[in-house]
Design a protein around this nucleic acid. Sequence first.
DNA 1: TCGCACACGTTATAGCATAACGCAATTGAT
DNA 2: ATCAATTGCGTTATGCTATAACGTGTGCGA
Lengths: 132, 132
Amino acid sequence: MTTPMLTKNQSLVFDVLTKAEAPLSAYTILDKLRDQGFRAPLQVYRALDKLLEYGVVHRLESINSFVVCAHPHEDCHSHGLVAFAICESCGQVIEFHDHEVDHRLMDSLKSQKFKAEKSTIEIRGHCANCAA
Amino acid sequence: MTTPMLTKNQSLVFDVLTKAEAPLSAYTILDKLRDQGFRAPLQVYRALDKLLEYGVVHRLESINSFVVCAHPHEDCHSHGLVAFAICESCGQVIEFHDHEVDHRLMDSLKSQKFKAEKSTIEIRGHCANCAA
DNA sequence: TCGCACACGTTATAGCATAACGCAATTGAT
DNA sequence: ATCAATTGCGTTATGCTATAACGTGTGCGA
């Protein structure tokens, strides 16, 4: 999917996420955009929905937060699974793609005749800097 | 971890989850236990916390729900990653363990000096019965 | 110019999770 | 025996996450 021109709200949300050093929750984004006129959660969620659809933002299910895609020039949707390592100390996220893991998981599922559509792979722990 | 004797509330919650054919949210569990005297979410969440700690229940982050462990006699904590295939149509969950995926993911992370602690692998799609 | 699609704004509500208080039962060390 | 620590429990209140439902405006093709 190619990313169309972003609307004003989408750009604002995208910019906030781009500048953030860690994933942000929708409500944190809302707070950061109050000065720009944001008043309600839906303004954020609607923008996020589009950004997710375009593949330029990822949702981290395990922490109810959002990050910009680390590989904006590739197409995350197209090269299979995306995985995230999330540091519980500093919040930093490492995004990575692994076709081996991808294939292996898909094979497991195919043998059960399960049709995969969306995937969530999130590993929580501590990054190199934060590891005790 | 060996599972100690469950308390009354823990047993009630565990039984509800065991009888369910699909993952349940905490509030759904609460509703099912009102007749047994449950009145507040915390009664459910506290029981769930312990059941998760004992490894007899899993939390599905992507759908904010809980399921009993499908392999109660092994120790889910001990044999690495647990993965779930969740049918978006009927809700059924297939729990599986794959050491290959496990090792592969851990190797990727180790190369970045990331110390993994908890993992979430959830694939949403359609099971054999529900696939169009 | 009509109809449609889409973005947007607002209010209200639904759904998920935990903080903080107090009480009761258990255990185990002194 | 008793005191302190721990654990489970109940209750009230609150906070965080997400969406429903309504209406407005704008652009664009039939």
